[in-house]
Write a protein that binds this DNA or RNA. Structure first.
Lengths: 221, 221
DNA sequence: GAAGAAAGGATAGTTGAACTATCCTTTATG
DNA sequence: CATAAAGGATAGTTCAACTATCCTTTCTTC
């Protein structure tokens, strides 16, 4: 199919597709002549994934490009290509410079978090970006005057663990590497808003129970 | 204190503070003369909260303004002011227009989600924005060819519930309404990246266990 | 009490991300 | 062969989030 049909099939405008091609988010089509290329179903799938990453996942074009670049690169091992998707996906976070005075607090919190998770038996690389996100969030909570007690942290970790296990089980069902990688990216990115939305709804439920009692009628908008 | 000191205390540039004042993210200082205003510790707290919402929470200035506007408005009831923070916080989502052909699929998925959650005993308003986020995410997963089996959805809900309950217990410790509201906003926004980061780390752990075995040494960066 | 410095409101300018429109060569088609 | 459309290259647009400038008012110091 030509660019125009790729656009029609996915609902993405032709200029936008060109933009994604330039940015390397989707692989170029097979050039059928000097000024014309042919696209296939894989392009449709990829384009839909990209749109999902950008709109639902809230990723930037740069993040999406980086993730997909590694996911596509056969130079990495299967484990790396599967892992790098989740490894590179977290948002970038500002880490204080070594000479910064806040660095001490940062290192303390980060060390505490690592220690706690390792005590729970979790394995992860010391340089995992997710650790920085964790540190930044806990530190910010502290700076606002809210402590994150270790037991609450354990509760978070314990609640999350079975989710990750179930998801991993789902992913490993895909035998073809490319399919497994795409599934990893899709699940990693698209389940996040699901979890957060459920948390918000749970808050609403808990709150309304305390406010209206367990047996009351549900309030409607 | 003056604007300059507010800037020094929080590390936010003077022009940025002016910008936030214009946007209504922080209340104006008490005018001590025609061209000078006085700020206090409340402004420092608020400004730090705003920065946390924007940087760590990833919210837009508009979202932060809307949430804080309701949180500050004494015209709402305690329950409303506490609830509206989480109610307004989810990201905006594109809902298909009534005449759109995708509307049927949308309604079907949304109905299914509501039904499932209500079956679990959850109470929430039909118009909750989080429901739209849920619908959008599940629908996008489906469009990419990934089903979200009802049992997995239940697992997500079951895992999230105790987290929300524990958080709500923490929040209700604050007796002063304003403190409770600020705590709600802070926890709602800042715990989200914590949960997502833990999920990423859990994925890494599960993956490395399958890859290297349960007893192997932890791989380091 | 005058003069320079500084605060701060109003306004306009800047930056970066994510598209979007135009130009123009090439190529398919009648 | 002429016309029209595809599509790569390039430049322009839009929006959010700041950031810089201007200028009046006020404070301080002599």
């Amino acid at each position: 199919m030509h660019l125009a049909e790729l656009s029609r099939r996915t609902g993405v405008s032709v200029p936008s597709i060109k933009f994604y091609l330039r940015e390397g988010l989707i692989p170029p089509g097979v050039p059928v002549s000097a000024r014309k290329s042919e696209y296939d179903e894989e392009h449709v799938r990829r384009l839909r994934l990209v749109r999902a990453m950008l709109t639902v996942g809230g990723m930037s074009v740069g993040q999406a490009r980086d993730v997909l670049a590694v996911a596509d690169d056969p130079a990495f091992t299967r484990h790396e290509r599967l892992g790098i998707a989740q490894y590179m996906l977290p948002p970038k976070v500002t880490v204080p410079e070594p000479d910064d005075e806040g660095r001490a607090a940062w290192d303390a919190v980060r060390g505490q978090i690592c220690e706690e998770l390792r005590a729970l038996g979790w394995r992860f690389q010391d340089g995992a970006p997710a650790l920085d996100v964790l540190t930044r969030s806990v530190l910010t909570l502290q700076e606002l005057g809210y402590e994150t007690p270790i037991e609450q942290f354990r509760r978070y970790a314990a609640a999350i663990r079975p989710i990750a296990e179930a998801e991993y089980a789902t992913i490993t069902q895909y035998e073809v590497l490319e399919e497994a990688i795409e599934a990893t990216v899709a699940y990693t990115v698209l389940v996040e808003p699901i979890l957060l939305a459920l948390r918000r709804l749970a808050h609403e439920d808990v709150s309304s129970r305390l406010h209206y009692g367990d047996e009351g009628e549900v309030r409607r908008a």
